[in-house]
Design a binder for these strands. Sequence first.
DNA 1: CACACGTGGCA
DNA 2: TTGCCAAGTGT
Length: 346
Amino acid sequence: MNFSNQLITWYNINSRDLPWRQTNDPYKIWLSEIILQQTKVQQGLPYFNNFICEFPTIFDLANSSEDKVLKLWQGLGYYSRARNLHYTAKYICFSCNGNFPQNYKDILNLKGVGEYTASAISSFAFNKNYAVLDGNVIRVLSRVFGIYNYFDTSSGKKQFKKLADFNLPLKDSYTYNQAIMEFGALVCTPKTPKCINCIFQDECYAFNNSKVQILPKKQNKIKVKNRYLNFLIVSIGDHVLLKKKNKGIWSGLYEFPSLEFKKDISKNNVVESSQWTNFFYRNNFQINNISPIIVHKLSHQKLHIRFIHIKSDKVKPNTYQLFKKDQLLQLPVSKAIENYLSQSFI
DNA sequence: CACACGTGGCA
DNA sequence: TTGCCAAGTGT
């Protein structure tokens, strides 16, 4: 039995029962694929169910507000996915008469849909022969066939793409695509793969040459930048100051006014900084509480956050909006702010 | 094309 | 504890 058929046989016995595998509805397939980008099934599953419950059809999603979509997405990370999801729902409903594109090229053109997702939708929703190439596929192919090429280079990508296409069976490509990803997620995992019971023990290059730990090879390493943020929770009566971010981290979410510094400076230095003076220019204020520094780690940044509770009677009109405190929980916010609000009184 | 973009789990 | 990495895409 060849590689592809072994995977399909394994899949038919060992696959998980997941909601997006019980439908051909391109909306549900698309939604699941966006949610699962860089995200584990365990983490994405409840979000998928919530979205389908709140937005049973793509029209419900398109007719929603972006803030509501982001609120449902809150906690999942990579929020541009949610903004692109909403944008694309509106595009399909209002510019395509609600017809989900069916050609690979047209699907690839959708915002938030790249090569992987276009192939996945083509295969899972329209039963077309496109091989998916994601982290799971790369890992399985790299180990079984002994591919040393760095997958995050153009030549590496080409080699993996070629191999993925080569292994795609023209019959039942749907099951093969599901199978190789499921196998990568459950057996051929990044760390401590389950080689003991693996169906490819005899032919797996990595297993037979003790290369499981070093394959697949990746070139780029991420460097983490330290940032020192002070969030100002400015209360004015029963209102607080926030704004919707439109660039950088947490774009689309709401955030308190923040003062950023190059270094880890003391709270006294924050209050005496020119940034602080500039923010409160001519306005009365009173500091009620200053939180300890909370460290929030992102993939590319390590944030050192201090929350400063301030009472003020008026504020200089600027880029911030006033929100009633009891409406704060309606707004989409980052995990850092969500965590803080959940254990702190404002 | 290198980098930004979140969060959680795991060794 | 720290670093790696997960059903990637946009710029």
